[in-house]
Simulated assay, not measured.
Amino acid sequence: MSFKDDLDDLETAEDFLRFFNVRYEQRVVNVNRLHILQRFHDYLAADTGLESLDDEGMTARYHAHLERAYQDFVVSNAIAEKTFKVHQEEARKMADRFVPLDALLNPSS
Results as ranks from 00 to 15, higher is better:
residue 45 A to R: 15
residue 5 D to L: 08
residue 30 N to S: 13
residue 41 H to N: 13
residue 66 L to T: 07
residue 59 T to Y: 03
residue 47 D to V: 02
residue 6 D to Y: 06
residue 56 E to N: 12
residue 6 D to A: 10
residue 6 D to F: 10
residue 26 Q to M: 13
residue 23 R to K: 13
residue 65 H to S: 10
residue 82 K to E: 06
residue 15 D to V: 04
residue 59 T to K: 00
residue 2 S to N: 08
residue 106 N to G: 02
residue 81 E to I: 07
residue 74 V to A: 13
residue 72 D to G: 10
residue 55 D to T: 01
residue 105 L to Q: 02
residue 102 D to R: 14
residue 24 Y to L: 12
residue 106 N to S: 08
residue 56 E to M: 11
residue 5 D to E: 10
residue 95 A to R: 13
residue 99 V to K: 06
residue 49 G to H: 12
residue 109 S to V: 09
residue 6 D to W: 07
residue 22 V to H: 03
residue 14 E to F: 06
residue 72 D to F: 08
residue 89 E to L: 14
residue 78 A to Q: 14
residue 31 V to M: 14
residue 58 M to V: 06
residue 54 D to K: 09
residue 65 H to V: 06
residue 52 S to C: 04
residue 80 A to V: 15
residue 38 Q to L: 11
residue 79 I to C: 12
residue 15 D to S: 07
residue 40 F to W: 00
residue 33 R to K: 13
residue 66 L to K: 00
residue 68 R to G: 06
residue 70 Y to C: 01
residue 74 V to C: 14
residue 15 D to G: 01
residue 30 N to G: 10
residue 17 L to I: 06
residue 25 E to N: 14
residue 39 R to L: 10
residue 68 R to T: 13
residue 48 T to F: 12
residue 61 R to C: 01
residue 43 Y to K: 13
residue 68 R to N: 14
residue 23 R to G: 12
residue 100 P to F: 02
residue 40 F to R: 02
residue 83 T to P: 06
